[in-house]
Design a protein around this nucleic acid. Structure first.
Length: 149
DNA sequence: CAGGTGATTACG
DNA sequence: GTAATCACCTGC
């Protein structure tokens, strides 16, 4: 899969971040080294995944919000139980990847879920406010590729 | 467009 | 212990 939509969550100074304020059992992976996966359960049903990006011991992460499926389309169809709207939202993306809580804290270079493959360059993108949050709504830290969907 | 869903966190 | 919150999805 190629990611086309992400959101940044900037650690303790960002009121919308899960790492704002307190370090807990759930958000502990956000303090890990870059590449660490932080998986959480949203609204009791959806698995959503972040990738830690900042230096170790600083909770910065990027939420994967959307993408285009480039590999294993049949598997995604099966896991999602539909053939449309496959990965256009964090929970759907999580289901498409087969996320479980076991993956939280694993590393995306060496763990069971990997982010390898070349980093493509992006021609056109835009920054907009983040979706579905109630704090720091004015910070435009949602990044979306505008040339493909 | 509206309703459901349950883990996680805060509070007493 | 209980209650409020929540980075959402699906079917109408």
């Amino acid at each position: 899969m190629r990611l086309t939509e992400v959101e940044a969550y900037g650690g303790r100074s960002d009121p919308a971040s899960h790492a704002f304020g307190r370090r807990t059992d759930r958000n502990d992976p956000m303090w890990g080294p870059p590449g660490t996966l932080y998986v959480y359960r949203s609204y009791g049903i959806h698995w959503c995944a972040n990738i830690v990006v900042g230096p170790e011991d600083e909770p910065n992460a990027v939420l994967m919000r959307g993408g285009v499926v480039t590999l294993g389309l049949a598997t995604v169809h099966e896991r999602r139980g539909r053939t449309t709207h496959l990965v256009d939202g964090p929970g759907k993306l999580g289901q498409a990847l087969g996320l479980t809580g076991e993956l939280s804290g694993t590393n995306t270079w060496s763990g069971p879920l990997r982010l390898d493959g070349p980093l493509g360059s992006v021609a056109e993108w835009e920054a907009t406010p983040r979706i579905g949050i109630s704090k720091a709504v004015d910070i435009p830290w949602r990044f979306r590729v505008t040339t493909e969907r």
